[in-house]
């Protein structure tokens, strides 16, 4: 019988800002390369039955804050299940939506939205947008790696009792004032990285699939992907970062 990886794509139509569909293409391509069937199920406000544990990987893309309350209301009954889920299973949350999984999102107009409280962070909507390259080191599933991407920052994140996902080599990261990028909680990655991150960094995609294999008691695939194209891309982007003019000060580590 064909082995199947089941992916849940949360609010794909509502949260659709930065070519985020690319992350699904990357997961699918890597899963299929290893001979698995990859099923993607879209979860939206009309989905009647949502059980996170039915999935091997969950992806929640960046969205407009305007829609956060509707999504928070939908996910609130699943809060505990999602917290249990990320203890062992991979989840990727990108961009502004990271704030939704935190405690509170303070809006620019002084109003506030209650987040899901799955990770202990506070989010603040910025008055202006900040867009830039993003480059950092991190560890996932026991593997050290470098991540490259970009960032369109509309909300700043303050970590309370969480570990950052990455340490910045260049970029704005969570709030432009620390070297922290994103949050890792269990196996859940909450990151500002766009790109799409799993396309630009297939080494992270490989680790997510490795983790899924462990969770499903499948043998780990030994034949590594040819990442030469993405390695070349990483290299030329570092050259770009090294020579470019920046508005970042202390944290623009070169």
């Amino acid at each position: 019988m064909e082995q199947t990886i089941k992916v849940g794509w949360l609010f794909n139509n509502m949260f659709n800002l930065h070519g985020d569909r690319g992350n699904l293409l990357a997961i699918r391509a890597e899963g299929e390369r290893r001979g698995y069937r990859v099923e993607v199920e879209q979860i939206n406000l009309e989905t009647v039955v949502f059980n996170p544990m039915d999935f091997d990987f969950l992806f929640c893309p960046p969205g407009e804050i305007e829609h956060f309350e509707a999504v928070a209301a939908y996910l609130e009954p699943h809060r505990k299940e999602l917290m249990d889920y990320i203890e062992t299973r991979p989840m990727l949350v990108t961009g502004t939506t990271v704030g939704l999984f935190g405690e509170t999102i303070s809006r620019d107009d002084q109003s506030a939205i209650r987040g899901l409280g799955i990770i202990e962070i506070e989010a603040r909507e910025n008055h202006a947008v900040y867009g830039d390259d993003l480059y950092y080191s991190c560890q996932y599933n026991g593997k050290e790696m470098e991540i490259i991407g970009s960032q369109i920052q509309m909300i700043d994140l303050d970590i309370k009792e969480e570990s950052p996902f990455g340490r910045l080599k260049y970029g704005y990261g969570n709030n432009g004032a620390t070297k922290f990028e994103g949050v890792i909680s269990g196996k859940g990655i909450f990151t500002n990285t766009l790109g799409p991150v799993l396309v630009c960094n297939p080494w992270l995609t490989e680790e997510i699939i490795n983790l899924i294999e462990v969770n499903k008691n499948w043998p780990i695939w030994e034949d590594h992907r040819d990442n030469s194209l993405e390695q070349a891309s990483l290299k030329t982007k570092i050259v770009h970062i090294d020579k470019k003019e920046t508005r970042l000060k202390d944290i623009a580590v070169r």
């Binding site: 930065h18 070519g19 985020d20 569909r21 690319g22 293409l25 867009g131 830039d132 390259d133 970009s150 766009l194 790109g195 799409p196 396309v199 982007k237 770009h240 470019k244 003019e245 920046t246 508005r247 970042l248």
Partner: peptide
Amino acid sequence: PHYINTFYAF
């Protein structure tokens, strides 16, 4: 800052 963005192509 100038930056690299091709994600919209997806």
